Simulated scan of single mutants.
Amino acid sequence: MNTKILMITSAIILGIMGLGLTFLPEEISEVLGMKTNQVSLLTIQILGATYLGFAMLNWMTKNNLIGGIYSRPLVIGNLVHFLVSSFALIKMLLHLENHIEIIVTLTIVYFILTLGFGYVFMTNPSKIAKTE
């Protein structure tokens, strides 16, 4: 598996979500129909900062050999994030009445990334022969 594509994809998705949550917490809360106060806005912004940090980590390591014992903490962190989030999103799908299209899209994206990082975790990487 080409882990570079997986790392770039996850970095872009997490980066977009992180930027939105960090810089547009009130607007996102309004679209989702959430009641806001200073603590909820701060929590959303902190979550956005976490996503941005994870996005930067994935982006900076996109060229590393990933899988097997190489970069295992990076793979485990991503796998746990996407797996637990996938479960939470699936659980939410069963009870949600509004904004179903947003949650379905996120669930599909997170599930695909979970499968990708799960595969990378379970397999050994192979170096691609470089021709010079």
Rank of each mutant, 00 (worst) to 15 (best):
N2G: 10
V109A: 09
N63P: 04
M60V: 10
N64T: 05
G33L: 04
Y119N: 02
N2I: 01
W59G: 08
F121E: 03
V104Y: 13
S29I: 05
N2Y: 09
T9S: 02
E30H: 14
L65Y: 09
H99A: 05
G118D: 04
K91F: 15
Y70Q: 12
H99I: 02
T131V: 10
A88P: 00
S126D: 10
L24V: 00
I69R: 15
V80A: 15
I102R: 03
I13A: 15
I44A: 15
T123C: 02
A49E: 07
L57G: 03
M34C: 06
T22I: 13
V109N: 05
F117C: 02
G77Y: 05
M92W: 02
V39D: 15
L41N: 14
N78T: 06
I69Y: 14
I103Q: 09
M60C: 07
T22G: 01
I16V: 12
I44T: 15
L19W: 06
M56F: 15
T105P: 02
I13P: 01
I28R: 12
T43L: 07
V104F: 07
E132W: 01
L24R: 13
N58A: 13
K62Q: 06
L115V: 09
M56T: 07
M60L: 13
G33R: 02
M17V: 14
I13Q: 10
N2R: 15
V80F: 10
W59C: 03
T3P: 04
E26T: 14
L106S: 07
N124V: 08
G53P: 07
I102K: 12
I28N: 07
I100Y: 06
T9W: 01
P25F: 00
L74T: 13
T43V: 11
E26F: 07
P125I: 00
V31D: 11
I5K: 15
V109D: 05
T131C: 10
E30D: 13
A129F: 10
T123Q: 01
I102D: 03
T105L: 03
E27C: 02
T107K: 00
F23R: 06
L24A: 14
M34K: 09
F82D: 05
F23I: 01
I46N: 01
T3E: 09
I8S: 02
L65V: 08
T131G: 05
G20H: 09
V120A: 07
L42K: 03
P125H: 03
S71F: 09
I103S: 01
E132L: 08
N37I: 08
S29F: 00
I66W: 01
E27P: 07
T123I: 03
